[in-house]
């Protein structure tokens, strides 16, 4: 997380503004290269590492400096974290592994 975003986190998000709904906000420094709508439209591909037609740096810069869009990115990240967490440590039961090995040995035996 950038220094700017850490600072925003500390200061809180009392206003909770939403991304500019259309075009580029005239007074918004984040919108000079990429509008809020363009950034929001790319948030999935950005987090998936699958951007097409726009660079990772351009989208990253927008989210780094846009107080309107950053919370949306953060919520997407938290959502993915909770998905990962939900299946952490889940593994195939040992008895099932042994059963698979027995099945494979029997199949190999049939061929031999």
């Amino acid at each position: 997380m950038s220094f700017f975003n850490r600072l925003k986190r500390l200061l809180g998000n009392a206003e909770a503004p939403t991304p500019h709904s259309e075009g580029k906000g005239e007074d918004c420094v984040a919108c000079r290269d990429l509008s809020c709508m363009e950034a929001m439209a790319k948030v999935q591909e950005y987090l998936d590492g699958e951007l097409d037609g726009v660079s990772h740096g351009e989208v990253a810069h927008h989210f780094d400096v846009c107080q309107r869009c950053y919370p949306h990115l953060r919520l997407e990240e938290r959502f993915r974290e909770v998905l990962h967490r939900s299946q952490a440590g889940e593994s195939c039961p040992e008895a099932l592994k042994e059963q698979v090995l027995r099945l494979l040995a029997a199949e190999a035996g049939k061929r031999g």
Partner: peptide
């Protein structure tokens, strides 16, 4: 484009 769920959550 803007996720309505996040608009509420944020």
């Amino acid at each position: 484009t803007v996720n309505p769920v996040w608009v509420k959550a944020v």
